[in-house]
Simulated assay, not measured.
Amino acid sequence: MHIVDVCGFYSPEGGGIRTYIEQKLRLAELLGQEITILAPGAKNGVQQVSPSSRIVRLQSPNFPLDRKYFAFTDRGSVHAALDRLQPDFIEASSPWKSAQFVAEYPRRVPRSLVMHSDPLAAHAYRWFEGLAAPNSIDRAFDWFWRRLRRFGREFDVVVAANSSLTKRLQDGGVPNAVTLPMGVEPGLFSPGKRQECVRTILLATCELPPDATLLVSAGRLATEKRIPMLVEAATVAGRQRQIGLVIFGEGRAHKKILRVIDGNPHVRLLQPVRDRELFATILASADALLHGCEAETFGMIAAEAHASGIPVIAPRGGGAGDFVRHDPALGFRPTDTADVVRAILELPHGGSSSRIAPAARSVEQHFRELFALYHALAQSALAVA
């Protein structure tokens, strides 16, 4: 089956979506699929990744809010590219222009909308935090909900990676919404990667002894990640017991986070670790992941921590919320610093090396299930035709 992913936010310099796309392309041949990523770019071109996968770029203008990205603006060129590619199934990867252009494509081809972003949770709920409840904000943004409901009717399936988002979509009247969790790289993240010497070094970086508790946080330093809240919570919890927090990341909130740390020697902000093997060792060597974002559609770092056998302290909501169900006491109310402090103090003192290794869902399992769903929808469309 030839699947064309009309991906408005793919960029070689991107983050989570880039990783997801690269995994999809790498697994295409193994899973017996032909995959084409149709993405906006600086100029037209084709990058052949394997005999079964490629990236086709359409010349498009820069995305105004981030020059690393480009944006589809010409429906005609997207439709013409789809005519040339002759897909058996079309996937749209955001609820913006790419989804609109795919919905309007006139050929009878089954199609899906994959919710790689949750704009209301990531932006609107945060903008009006403390001023209005989410249900009031939803009413104010009913234009966006009408858009999602229309997409639910025009697409054969709307795929969400976490149960919280699926429930919100269903409660908002969006038809055809299903949950299909993503997965982690098989064999990379494991409790077996834990090294007490790495743990000791990281605690020493925080000027703490080996019997202290080591928390790690990792990811883009963006406002919606709520790193300042985590720093404040770890600082307050650290007044009751020895707690070190090491944050790995870079981004536009870097200076703000340093101001909140305010010289606390037990909290360190370090550059991201791009060596995946080393990062897997660091993650497994921590006593817990501390995560603040309730707006992620999956929560890849939470999945990686879960596969590494360490507890996940995270909000009860969004992608990471699916992982705190394993330790309900470690879930906290989103945006509630005091409840984050409580969750941190629920951890046992010192290390967690006796923790039982969980069963980790692999990225290959995710794509097998996704492609099986697409195949079933394509077969149903043929039967109706």
Rank of each mutant, 00 (worst) to 15 (best):
G321C: 10
F323K: 09
F323Q: 02
F323C: 12
R325F: 05
H326F: 14
H326T: 15
P328E: 04
A329Q: 12
A329P: 09
A329V: 04
A329H: 09
G331Q: 06
G331D: 03
R333Y: 01
P334C: 03
T335P: 00
T335H: 03
T335N: 13
T335M: 11
T337Y: 00
A338R: 03
D339V: 04
D339Y: 04
V340S: 11
V341Y: 04
V341I: 01
R342K: 06
R342Y: 04
I344Y: 02
I344H: 08
E346L: 00
E346K: 08
L347R: 00
L347S: 00
P348K: 02
P348A: 00
P348C: 09
H349A: 14
H349P: 02
H349Q: 15
G350L: 08
G350V: 08
G351I: 11
G351S: 15
G351T: 15
S353K: 04
S354V: 07
S354L: 14
R355C: 10
A357I: 00
A359G: 11
A359R: 13
A360F: 08
A360K: 11
R361G: 07
S362L: 11
V363E: 01
Q365L: 05
Q365H: 12
F367V: 05
F367P: 07
E369A: 13
E369Y: 01
F371D: 02
F371G: 11
A372G: 10
L373T: 14
L373Q: 10
L373R: 09
Y374C: 08
A376H: 13
L377F: 11
A378L: 11
Q379D: 11
S380Y: 06
S380Q: 15
A381Q: 14
A381N: 14
L382Y: 05
L382G: 10
L382P: 05
A383W: 06
A383H: 12
